[in-house]
């Protein structure tokens, strides 16, 4: 009797030893590999780049609270960051919008990007760019046949308000073209070398590394390029085409008077110019883009256009080219 009972125990023991032994050997192999290293290096070896990022966060001054903002809905990295950098104060935000819409006075200024790679301190603009570059609203961009060596994009933006606005588009050249883009009116220059096609998911941030409410871009190239750009509302997933300007419109522009719309006045020139809209008159500084109330017909040496946000999120533009 005793023998068969012992046999049962030995069978049971074998049934647990067989699956446990290889895993125990794996633990021991790992321990042997890590044995010569100090603890921090062991963690780097086990957790990889994630722990390198954590170590950089550990070096931040304790007094500065951190905003842990997730860039991936599946990541749990914020939990491990909290574990390793405790007692550093942190606030976790499930996404960028939670941070963007939180109380500015209470939220931490220092942002840590969490998920999809090493945790790292970033600016809000960098975090936004990381998210935006992953997708586009425009699925397909058809470029016009017309080539140009100089033109202006009358309105560009890269901004988060209630919604995210960007400029999407593309430029193409069959030959190698050196294209100079100048963000006006600050005069920030970016030179691109284009051979073939270059696409933009957020023209302003991609080229000038800044978020900007409203500006315009002057483009010049040593070779003709074909280009097209759209004003994009990322949240509503809508895109409105933006005309490229070669010259001013030398005639009165009969925009409607509309209290729900904005009238945009763009002085492309190097000197100030007088402009009239309805009963109002302004002196527009050189290379300046202004937004005013839509008070009626525009006259003056400017390029003007009207924008109106519709309830469905679409921004409707009326360009001078649209006016009869």
């Amino acid at each position: 009797m005793r023998r068969w009972r012992e046999a049962i125990f030995i069978i049971l023991l074998a049934s647990v030893v067989i699956p446990a032994a290889p895993r125990l050997a794996e633990w021991l192999r790992l321990a042997w590999e890590l044995r010569p290293l100090p603890m921090a290096a062991r963690r780097e070896a086990v957790f990889g780049d994630f722990y390198l990022g954590v170590e950089a966060l550990q070096r931040l001054p304790l007094l500065k609270p951190l905003a842990l903002i997730r860039v991936s809905p599946k990541t749990q990295d914020q939990l491990f960051i909290n574990y390793y950098i405790y007692p550093h104060r942190t606030s976790t935000y499930w996404n960028r919008w939670m941070y963007a819409t939180s109380d500015e006075k209470r939220r931490p200024e220092t942002i840590v990007q969490v998920g999809e790679g090493i945790p790292r301190v970033v600016s809000y603009a960098e975090l936004r760019d990381f998210e935006l570059r992953k997708s586009r609203v425009l699925r397909k961009i058809d470029l016009p046949q017309q080539s140009r060596t100089a033109f202006a994009i009358p309105l560009v933006t890269s901004i988060d308000g209630v919604e995210t606005y960007t400029i999407e588009g593309a430029m193409a050249s069959d030959e190698e073209a050196h294209v100079t883009l100048t963000l006006q009116r600050d005069g920030i220059v970016k030179i691109l070398t284009i051979r073939g096609r270059v696409a933009f998911y957020d023209l302003v941030y991609q080229c000038f590394r800044r978020m900007q409410f409203a500006a315009w871009v002057q483009v010049s190239s040593d070779k003709p390029v074909r280009a097209a750009f759209w004003f994009v509302n990322r949240n509503a997933k809508t895109a409105a085409p933006i005309p490229l300007i070669d010259a001013l419109v030398d005639r009165p522009m009969a925009f409607p008077s509309d209290p729900t719309a904005h009238l945009w006045l763009l002085n492309l020139g190097e000197s100030a110019t007088k402009v009239r809209a309805g009963d109002w008159e302004w002196n527009l500084p050189p290379r300046h883009l202004s937004m005013v109330d839509a008070t009626g017909t525009v006259t003056g040496h400017v390029y003007a256009f009207l924008s109106r946000k519709q309830p469905n999120g679409v921004t409707q533009f009326i360009w001078p080219e649209d006016l009869k």
Binding site: A20, W27, L30, A31, L34, R35, R42, F47, N82
Partner: peptide, 28 residues
């Protein structure tokens, strides 16, 4: 097995989920 488990206990960094995220964070 208990003696062998002492080796990774002494050397291998803690790498489980709940232990770090919930229990030992509270301990800290």
């Amino acid at each position: 097995p208990l003696a062998l488990l002492a080796i990774p206990t002494a050397i291998v960094p803690l790498k489980d989920f709940d232990g770090r995220v919930f229990w030992l964070l509270k301990a800290k």
